[in-house]
């Protein structure tokens, strides 16, 4: 009786219809915008891929190992050499380079867009009130759900993959930038004000440098998340190592799947350690 009443008096909200309508409208009317974004992203990915494919794998490994060494970690340097030699040996070099290009593209875009948004959130209560729930939404909505509209807007290929990665990976950068700036001690902010800093001077001379450890932690998370998304994105045609994983999984080739997975792991560890350490030695040197 009660059930009947509820089902009779409370029609289901047509959220699905609304979203569909909105997506249709956007793909019709904002085509130019999406095309522009697509071209830009494609160019960035191509540029990264071109750069990574340019040197011989050996040279690339040496350069990467050198960067790891400069970041102050000879162990990481050694791991980089062994890990990437393994990838080369297994025959996943090209795929790994494409994946790296994808990860860096979505990582760089996330950082370039995310840090200013994070700063904005820290400065304006209104902004953080709107953006924080949006970030929650982006992080908890299952990734496959926004893979589909991405395909609608940008068709299959690398671009929707990058877009989906950005949506999935940008929240940590925004959150940690916001948090880092808010955690700068009130007395230091007062000191910056008391000596007559402008808002910009305060931001760049005091708040951002002091928020740096937090921001770097956010960037590290962003890179890791975009790597994990890039594998999923291969389902909609993004190139790279994800394709190998996906193929192995669909064809039940357990051994091959493991190999490709291993390549992802190596890439992940190197990216993680590098992005954690690349800014630390500068501070250590100054303290020494």
């Amino acid at each position: 009786m009660l059930n009947n009443l509820i089902s009779a008096e409370m029609p289901k909200l047509p959220i699905a219809d609304w979203v569909d309508t909105a997506v249709d409208w956007m793909s019709l009317n904002l085509e130019g915008l999406f095309e522009g974004i697509a071209v830009a992203i494609e160019n960035v990915v191509d540029a990264f891929t071109w750069v990574f494919m340019l040197p011989h794998p050996i040279l690339f490994i040496v350069i990467l190992a050198a960067i790891a060494y400069l970041a102050g970690k000879w162990k990481l340097s050694l791991f980089t050499v062994l890990g990437f030699l393994l990838i080369w040996n297994l025959g996943y070099w090209d795929a790994t380079m494409s994946t790296l290009a994808l990860v860096l593209t979505s990582g760089v875009i996330s950082i370039v867009v995310g840090i200013p948004i994070g700063i904005w959130c820290a400065k304006s209560k209104g902004a953080s009130g709107v953006i924080t729930p949006l970030l929650d939404f982006m992080q908890t909505m299952p990734a496959f759900v926004y893979l589909l509209p991405a395909v609608t807007f940008f068709s299959l290929g690398v671009v929707p993959g990058v877009i989906a990665s950005i949506i999935f990976a940008i929240p940590p950068t925004i959150r940690m930038t916001n948090l880092g700036i808010k955690h700068v001690s009130g007395e230091l902010v007062e000191a910056a004000d008391a000596f007559g800093s402008t808002g910009t001077q305060k931001l760049f001379k005091v708040q951002l440098p002091l928020a740096m450890p937090n921001i770097m932690a956010g960037i590290n998370q962003t890179i890791m998340l975009s790597l994990s998304m890039v594998v999923i994105a291969s389902m909609i045609g993004a190139q790279g190592i994800g394709v190998e994983v996906y193929r192995a999984v669909t064809q039940l080739q357990i051994g091959k799947g493991f190999e490709a997975g291993l390549a992802v792991v190596v890439l992940a560890i190197v990216l993680d350690r590098l992005s954690q350490n690349i800014f630390k030695p500068a501070q250590k040197r100054r303290n020494a």
Binding site: E187, L188, E190, A191, D193, A194, F195, G196, S197
Partner: peptide, 20 residues
């Protein structure tokens, strides 16, 4: 800002030195 730069300076209880 000009007043803060030229006329009035401040010394803080917990020093408030910029650690970086």
């Amino acid at each position: 800002r000009q007043v803060r730069r030229k006329t009035i300076s401040m010394v803080f209880q917990k020093f408030a030195l910029f650690p970086h």
